[in-house]
Each structure stands twice: as structure tokens, then as C-alpha cells.
């Protein structure tokens, strides 16, 4: 049985439809259809791509975790090393700051010769406020030499061995330093205590001592050189029936954080013991 259209007519119709479609496409009439198609293709491509990448990740991630862990461990080790270096450098900076302050003090007071020392220990007994420094008779240190920091008077050398010395702090209960208060032109005696507090004794009743007054060594007695800063008056206790006033002193030196000190090596203490009249019958 034969079809209704001859083959040549079919070709002509198909050709015309094709030309018509091309003309319509060129005229932009197929834009919505082509957009929908493109979106479909892109979505499909994205879906396949995601699945592929997930599959690749699945195969390769274990190896990456191992390398990341190793890298992390290396970085942590490096951080720890850098932190150690930072701490060491911070410590060095602190030491340099303290030492430069001591050097500045030595330059500002050129009348004395100084020798720097590091505090390496404290007296094991809480009754004694002494520190041990790392230089001794081999460095020319002698008993009685005054010890200072850039902040003020620390104490004096009490005992010496070849490579170390023991320093009695002015806060020790047996320490007594002759001092003066320039503001009131008064002389007094600075004494320590078992608790480490400093107080002024033998202050004349007629002296006008105010909180904030600066306390300097007077040089009397020959135990310490004059004009070394000791501290400031915190409070004054004046009772009419007592012979002398008393005052609490805030030392300039922080004795709990004493690290480096300067020993004045060209000061020779005077022993006035023979001049003190003996008591008794």
C-alpha cells in the first residue's frame, strides 16, 4: 500500500519545517525552550560533577588527613619552640631593663664604684631577712659593703666566702640604719622587723614629719654612705608621753622581687664599736 505523500513531497515538507524552525530560532522565538534546556543540561552536569568530586574526596581524604596531622604536629612543635623563645626573650628583656636601670644609677652616682651581683637565694629561716648573692671575696667583696639597687638602699654585706656573699637586708629585725628626712631636716633611725616592715625610730618630738617625706641615709655611724634613697614616710605616730615619734616607712626597693643588686666596693665602713661606752658596772 502506498502512502498519501510521495517521498519528494515529504522531503520538501521536512525541509520547509527545518527552515521554518531555523528562522524561528534565529528570530529568538525558541529562547524560553533553549534556556530550559540549557538549565537542564547544567543541572545534570553539576549533579554528575558533585558526585564525581565526592567520590574523589572519598578516595583521597584519608591520605590528606594523615599529611594534615603531620603538618599540624610540626606546626605545634614549632609554636611550642617559638613560645619558649618568646618567654626566654621576655626574660632577657626584663633582665636587660633591670640591668640598664642599675647601670643608669651607677652613672648617675659616679662617686662610688659598683659591682653587680645576682641574688641566688634567701636565708632558709624566716627569722632572718638575708639574701645570698653570687660574688664573694674572689671579686673583692668585703663584709660591711653597702648594697643598693637603682631604687635605693638594700642592705649590707654580712658574710663572705670565695664565690658568694650573704647580705643583710634593711628589713631584717636586727638592722638599724641612720637616716635623715630632708623635708623636716630631721635625723632618725630606720629599723627593720620580723615581719619585714620598716619603721623610723628616735624621731624627735618637735620634728614635723609628714606622710610622703623622703628618707635618705645620713651617713652617721659610718655604716652606710650618705644620701642613699631608702623610702618614704607612710604614717606618723606621735604620742605626747613618749620620748620620740615613730613612723612607718614604705621602702623604695621591692624586696620580694630582688634579682640584681649593686655592691658599693669603694666604701669602707667605719667600726665605731670601740667608741661606744661599755654598759654595766
Amino acid at each position: 500500500m502506498k502512502t498519501g505523500f510521495p517521498r519528494s513531497l515529504q522531503r520538501i515538507v521536512i525541509g520547509l519545517v527545518a527552515v521554518g524552525l531555523i528562522v524561528l530560532a534565529l528570530g529568538g522565538y525558541f529562547q524560553p525552550v533553549s534556556s530550559w534546556f540549557q538549565r537542564l543540561v547544567v543541572d545534570a552536569q553539576t549533579w554528575f560533577s558533585d558526585r564525581y568530586l565526592a567520590f574523589v574526596d572519598f578516595l583521597t581524604v584519608p591520605r590528606d588527613v594523615a599529611s594534615l596531622r603531620q603538618q599540624n604536629a610540626e606546626l605545634e612543635a614549632e609554636v611550642a619552640q617559638l613560645q619558649t623563645q618568646v618567654i626566654a626573650l621576655q626574660q632577657q628583656v626584663t633582665e636587660v631593663q633591670v640591668l640598664s636601670a642599675l647601670l643608669e644609677f651607677a652613672r648617675a652616682n659616679p662617686e662610688y664604684s659598683y659591682m653587680g651581683a645576682t641574688v641566688i637565694g634567701r636565708d632558709p629561716s624566716p627569722f632572718y631577712r638575708y639574701v645570698i648573692v653570687d660574688i664573694g671575696s674572689n671579686n673583692g667583696i668585703l663584709p660591711g659593703m653597702p648594697v643598693v639597687t637603682n631604687q635605693g638602699l638594700v642592705g649590707r654585706v654580712d658574710a663572705v666566702i670565695a664565690e658568694a656573699a650573704r647580705v643583710q637586708l634593711i628589713t631584717d629585725s636586727a638592722s638599724a640604719v641612720n637616716v635623715r628626712l630632708p623635708a623636716s631636716n630631721t635625723e632618725a633611725m630606720l629599723v627593720g622587723s620580723v615581719t619585714g616592715d620598716l619603721s623610723l625610730d628616735m624621731v624627735p618630738q618637735d620634728a614635723t614629719v609628714q606622710p610622703g617625706d623622703v628618707v635618705l641615709t645620713s651617713g652617721l655611724g659610718g655604716g652606710y654612705p650618705p644620701n642613699l634613697l631608702v623610702g618614704q614616710v607612710v604614717s606618723v605616730r606621735q604620742l605626747e608621753y613618749e620620748l620620740f615619734q615613730q613612723a612607718s616607712i614604705q621602702p623604695n626597693v621591692d624586696f620580694s622581687r630582688l634579682q640584681f643588686v649593686l655592691i658599693i666596693t669603694n666604701f669602707k665602713p667605719v667600726d665605731i664599736t670601740p667608741l661606744i661606752p661599755a654598759t654595766g658596772p
Binding site: 641566688i120 637565694g121 634567701r122 636565708d123 632558709p124 629561716s125 624566716p126 645570698i132 620580723v194 620580694s256
Partner: peptide
């Protein structure tokens, strides 16, 4: 014990007291 006493323990104060490790 002596070194620790001199360097560490004697710096740790409670009021004015300190321990005696030795």
C-alpha cells in the same frame, strides 16, 4: 632539698613564715 629551700621555698611566704623543706 637545700637548693630548693634557698631558691624556691624560702620565697613562698605565708604572712612572714615560710616552710622548711630540709
Amino acid at each position: 632539698a637545700v637548693f630548693l629551700q634557698l631558691t624556691v621555698v624560702s620565697r613562698i611566704n605565708l604572712l612572714s613564715g615560710s616552710a622548711d623543706l630540709v
